[in-house]
Design a protein around this nucleic acid. Sequence first.
DNA 1: ATCGGCCACAACCAGCGGTTGTACCTCTAG
DNA 2: CTAGAGGTACAACCGCTGGTTGTGGCCGAT
Lengths: 313, 313
Amino acid sequence: MDLDLDTVRTFVAAADAGQFQEAAAELAVTQQAVSKRIAALERNLGVRLFTRTARGAELTIDGQAFLPHARELLRVAERAVTSVRTGRRPLRVDVIASRGAATGLMRGFHRVYPDIELDVVMLFDIDTAVAAIRSGAIDASFRAVAMPGRPLPEDIESVRVLDEPLQLLTGPAHALAGARSVTVAQLAGHRIWMPGVVPGTEWAAYYDDLVAEFGLTIEATGPNFGSDALLDTVADTPALATFMGEQMRLVWPAGHGLRRIPLTDPTPVYPHSLLWHRDNPHPALATLRAHLAAAAAGLDAAGTWTPNWVTPR
Amino acid sequence: MDLDLDTVRTFVAAADAGQFQEAAAELAVTQQAVSKRIAALERNLGVRLFTRTARGAELTIDGQAFLPHARELLRVAERAVTSVRTGRRPLRVDVIASRGAATGLMRGFHRVYPDIELDVVMLFDIDTAVAAIRSGAIDASFRAVAMPGRPLPEDIESVRVLDEPLQLLTGPAHALAGARSVTVAQLAGHRIWMPGVVPGTEWAAYYDDLVAEFGLTIEATGPNFGSDALLDTVADTPALATFMGEQMRLVWPAGHGLRRIPLTDPTPVYPHSLLWHRDNPHPALATLRAHLAAAAAGLDAAGTWTPNWVTPR
DNA sequence: ATCGGCCACAACCAGCGGTTGTACCTCTAG
DNA sequence: CTAGAGGTACAACCGCTGGTTGTGGCCGAT
């Protein structure tokens, strides 16, 4: 069984017209073609959709039930096409990780502006994102930090939109597992494991600064086998802990007793910025920027830490 | 431009597999067929969806943006097909008029149980509805009243689920237009116009009883040109008023100054009942009945009027 | 440098889905 | 009652879409 959108369109036209002939005229085909399409659709679905009368065709109950689904199908097909049509396409935003803070911000935006069509993609790194912004392939990008000593191109604008506090993630047997909160100084001497942090990226620079300033021990070695494997290991290893953004949503392994512990004194935060092209005329981009600016106005930098090279607020 | 669902399915399979060969194997076609389908899709959309590499094909940014729409399209197509598949199909409910109280009840049900799939149809009269319930073409029907002296067949069960108060609808120049509420007795001598009430139906019987008991003047004559025409006429004719269910949502003609005036002493109510087949095993039907029973428990019959032949509460 | 894995292009062919022509049904008008 | 209008279905025909097999080219790994 496979629906054919042309046939579905024919069905909707016939249902609206109340007869095959008129639908055929609208669709610029012969009445016989419509008759055959509907017959094929009915054969495929295994139900009768119209009762043929002397002055047309009217929907059966099955046809009535099918009609809204058919309309929805055409709507979705239309949206799918416009999602890749250049010009008046949905706002296309790149987020850094599907469960991170950027996704949360976009969800919040969508709640406030449900009528603004959005497409979300995930690019590999900030260089790809900047190139995509310049080429117009995307309209905006959430990036955690700017690289030290490497300013953005002049035609790319950016603004800090969210500071996401870092939390410590430990297993139940970890020495700090019972703490309600932990100061950064207390972490000295504990092993912090951050696999998958690629040297040379903004993340590596961020943790390098954190280590240098507070004398932590961060092991960035080892390949990233995915967050599931990371969580399993942390849960089972009393001597290991890791960092994680406060808003990161996890597929929480049941019964592992993992703890999320806030960091204080100061609280290291991931600075999230929105990047876009100076000349991008997409109307929804202005709305997004205004929305995020309003949301960011409530941020409080007191007691937080970031490397000194990040984009200022 | 017209999407082909088979092609879209191929696109999703290729995106998931990361290469055309594996997608081809899953779809039981040759690699060349997949290649041609994707090429055709890209040509139709006017964008490149994959970048071909030596070890497969990975999504472009456009491809990433298109992917969720493609998945959605397949989901909707799947739902469309199941909506007419016998067995495990969505709960199919007949409502008496698209903007009436029954629709409101179903919306409330959908809010509480958003995961229960629903299809709503509108049948012509109670006889059609009963036949459809007995044949299994629909699972339940909202009907306003039972006919006097014509009990439901034994295999059809029903329960009162809502009493919808009647309101008076007048134009701005009507004698009662300024009233906050109107007693039924005050209506004596005023012309109430109810075009489109077909003699012999439950509606006709309802208004016959109302007339007989309170001495009103109801004109049921004339064809029904639709609610728009009715509203226009009522708005422009000082001597005319009509009845309307409290929950009826109207396409309110702007600037016509129409007034909805509650009726009291007593308040005539449309009794809405849910009808279903004794032996219908659809699990969602039990949920709907329980939901409506809970909602109906809060009804208060004090000060209301119905004909004495309606299904008791 | 060669091999393996993957995608694209070419040639071919079956069948889907269109067209025209016609039959049949039903309601209505004379 | 009959004839005509308006609507749908069936039959025959055919072009083109979309599959197949065969083959070549590209890229990365050994």
